[in-house]
Design a binder for these strands. Sequence first.
DNA 1: CGACCGATTGACT
DNA 2: GTCAATCGGTCGG
Length: 224
Amino acid sequence: MIIVVCYLIFHVKVNEMLNSFKRLPRSFYLRPTITVAKDLLGKFLVRKLGRKYLVGKIVEVEAYLHNDPASHSFRGKTKRNEVMFSEGGHLYVYFTYGMHFCCNVVTEEEDKGCAVLIRAVEPVENIEVMQHRRKIDISKNQFNLTNGPAKLCQAFDLGREENGTDLCGEKIWIGDAIRLTSHISSPISNRDIISTPRVGITNPSEHKWRFYIKGNGWVSRKNN
DNA sequence: CGACCGATTGACT
DNA sequence: GTCAATCGGTCGG
């Protein structure tokens, strides 16, 4: 009897979580990359890890377009970047600097090679799990948990195994909040989106394809 | 095959 | 502010 009740409570809890962050449909990703990039601000990255769901609000992104010299896809499909050429709505995770991972959302139709880099999220659910996964002491700076592309990948346990994951599936997805709680802000209005050149791109005529939520503490490199 | 370097981070002067 | 860590991708010989 007790076991049945516990199971039912657990079942309801899980469904609450799933319903709270409703998956974006495939059609969301099959749109122009800059549009998707801006619309991803304020959305919620959900990552199933064991029985828990890690959740973070996306606060900073960068767009990597078709025929973009700064994009990994610029020189065509390789084993490394092949996921970028899949249909929009898949996760492209790449390894860099010999020790870090960064994650992107593939956009537009198959073979376009477009994606949006997720540069920072604001922790929302199961923050203690993120803290455990990050090796660093964040007691003096809470933002250090997820205020960078490789930091959030470490916090959310995103690596080689997650490369190619379908965001319309059960393991990792991006959603809209259905039930808003006190620490979740309203949808992002256009005047609260700041555009700057992308970080670490050395092209002198770099476009302003980095977008972040104005005033959000988890945005990386605020001196930019 | 060797040299160079990167959509970064953390430690340190 | 500077800089090492660390390794796979890319490019030239």
